[in-house]
Amino acid sequence: MRRRLAPAAVAVLTGAALTGCSLFGQGPEQVSVFDAAPGECFLAPEEIVAELTEITRVPCDSAHDQEAYAVVDYVTGEGTEGYPGDGALKDFADGSCAAEFAGYVGVDYRDSSLFLTYLLPSARSWEQDGDREVTCFVTTTGEPLTATVRDSAL
């Protein structure tokens, strides 16, 4: 059960991971990439890898690099159930994540000071696990986020 990190995410994730602060005794916790849900915040991986199995979840009021804002299913046409390839998944994720952005952040992606990135199904998770989900994240290339971006209009 692995997910492939989108190349767009690789550029964003090159910074060092930050240490999350505790909130009611909750600190950073490793979770499966399949468990990332909208409204949850995460640290960037310390090392860049092509496939991830876990990511570090932190409270959104502590320093974080990314906030999940949507999980969208890649829908295949009849007779096209096989892995669609990197290009088709990236095109789908670019369009789908941009379309979901305004509903979460409160401003169109083209007018935002924030960026988006995503996790894509890997060929392995597609074939072995039936993985069809793209997880969309809000991120920044500047200072870390220290609060949720939901309805922030940033």
Rank of each mutant, 00 (worst) to 15 (best):
A36L: 12
R3Y: 13
P38G: 10
Y83T: 07
A8Y: 09
Q128P: 00
D65P: 05
S62N: 09
F137M: 09
D94C: 01
P38W: 02
L89Q: 01
E127N: 14
A16P: 03
A37L: 14
V10R: 09
T76N: 05
P144W: 09
T146G: 11
V33E: 10
T135F: 06
A50G: 15
T53L: 12
P28F: 01
A70V: 06
T53K: 11
R4N: 07
F101T: 02
S22Y: 11
V33D: 04
F115N: 14
G130V: 09
S32I: 05
R57K: 15
A153R: 14
L43Y: 00
V105S: 01
A147F: 01
T148F: 02
L43T: 12
E47V: 10
V134S: 13
T140A: 15
A70I: 10
D35G: 01
V149I: 10
V149C: 08
E133S: 14
L114D: 03
S113A: 15
D73Y: 08
T141F: 13
S112L: 08
L43Q: 15
R3Q: 14
D65S: 13
E67V: 08
R57A: 15
A36V: 15
V105D: 00
G25C: 11
L114F: 05
T76E: 13
P7Q: 10
L145W: 05
A6Y: 00
G77C: 10
G130Q: 07
D91A: 11
T146L: 02
V49H: 11
C136G: 12
F24E: 03
V105K: 03
M1Q: 07
G142K: 09
T53H: 08
L116A: 00
A17T: 04
E81F: 09
P28I: 01
D129G: 02
F115E: 14
G39C: 07
A6K: 04
S113Y: 10
M1D: 04
T80V: 07
D129C: 06
R110Y: 04
A68F: 06
A123R: 14
E127K: 14
V107E: 03
C21V: 04
L116T: 12
A37Q: 15
P45S: 04
E51Q: 14
R132W: 05
E143A: 15
G85H: 05
W126G: 07
S122F: 03
A88S: 03
M1N: 07
F92P: 00
G20Y: 00
T14M: 11
Q66T: 12
